[in-house]
Design a binder for these strands. Structure first.
Lengths: 229, 229
DNA sequence: TGAATAGTGTCTTTGAGACAATATTGC
DNA sequence: GCAATATTGTCTCAAAGACACTATTCA
């Protein structure tokens, strides 16, 4: 029925780290410092370490931390990419994760870490282009019915800022009234005492933050054939 | 940054094969014929075969075919389960898939293949309970906004039958008019010339089938914060 | 005061559910 | 015709979008 032995398969995790920069989704890429594809820009990734990692999520978080210094963002499994041709070293499995962070927490002092707009990706090694495209699709879909984009904002943000983030991710304008009604319904934000203004010659906007119970999770709206009943 | 060597990790695929039986979702389980957990009921699964499999999907389809005889159902990647504790043999990765089939195509002549309702699962080895629960959750969620449940029907079905399938999967009644409006909108069904009646003393229902372009894919309804614009 | 953007009220449109009328079959 | 279920029409209700009005700040 099946072979008793299994030849060793290359087992890795890759992380699609997304952020918003100049109003557009960007993916964080690293210049590789080893073969294969030494010197090429690629997703942060690495082998699973059986001694350290208690799960694939742990491995992804560790790889992200080791390669970019980023800790504990929103990090979720995307899909697994596997096959004989995606890595020149042989049959390989990559468990892909995606993460969202505000651009402000990205390290700026490491030239090997760069950001590229997801709409104009450079050529990428392995099947990393498919992985990025898949992550972007997932983020767009999930943003339609959840609070996912808040993880692209910093800790404090105004509703107009958050709406701009949603619009950048979804690539289309959103009705302001509906947007605020929906956020009200999701009940995951709380106002902070103290408004911001900076923009200047206009009414300042209320600052909000995620309520504690949503700091690391999502709020999802009901939807479907029959959300009622 | 990372170890140059990677010890061999156990790489498998598992398939959550779901069907509808007596109005309830059931998962197909196999009596294991080898260690570990010899004799226990478990998901059909097996090693990736580097020589044969061109992808993880291929491996899942092969495993399903070899273990149950079922070919080419709706088969989609679910998620990957990995860690040091889920398999007594060591750090393991299982790329899980789920499949939907009409109960009529299940083999009935093999006693090692059984069906269990997903609401009353027997105890399962490995983390197969988590995998099944995850698949059931995915199917329920996806059924809310897509045509997924049609793959639980045979090739020909009436709208009342299909509605009953949706209701069984979602676990709640659906408004008949809305249901038909939604199917109309999805535009994936076509009537077959010829009605069925069997039930007897009442008006017969029109038989439908999937339109060719949807035979192996899904139709998904728009949804979200701003489906318009 | 005027420009600019934040925040809110409300009318309109759209889509889903309720309900019921009509259609068709076997007895 | 009667029972039973399929199919369709239409009214009602709720959510989403459009639009505009008010609020607040700085120059």
């Amino acid at each position: 029925m099946q072979k008793a032995r299994h030849e060793s398969i290359i087992c890795t995790v890759d992380v699609v780290l997304l952020t918003l920069h100049e109003g557009a989704l960007h993916v964080v890429l690293l210049k590789r410092d080893r073969e294969p594809f030494n010197g090429a820009l690629a997703l942060p990734g690495g082998y699973i370490h059986q001694q350290e990692d208690q799960s694939a999520w742990d491995a992804a978080a560790r790889v992200l931390r080791e390669k970019t210094g980023i800790t504990a963002p929103y990090l979720e499994q995307l899909a697994t990419f596997a096959g004989p041709g995606r890595d020149p070293r042989g049959w390989s499995v990559s468990i892909a994760y995606y993460a969202l962070v505000p651009v402000s927490i990205l390290p700026t002092d490491r030239p090997q870490i760069v950001m590229r707009p997801v709409e104009r990706l450079p050529s990428l090694p392995f099947d990393h282009k498919s992985i990025v495209d898949s992550a972007v699709g997932r983020v767009r879909t999930k943003s339609q019915y959840s609070s996912l984009p808040v993880y692209l904002c910093g800790e404090r943000f105004t509703l107009p800022q958050l709406q701009a983030v949603y619009e950048a991710v979804l690539g289309e304008p959103i009705n302001k009234v509906s947007f605020r009604r929906k956020l009200e319904e999701l009940a995951m934000l709380e106002p902070i005492e103290g408004a911001m203004e900076s923009g200047g010659a206009h009414r300042p906007a209320q600052l909000y933050r995620l309520r504690k119970e949503y700091r690391r999770s999502l709020s999802v709206v009901d939807r479907g054939l029959n959300p009622r009943s």
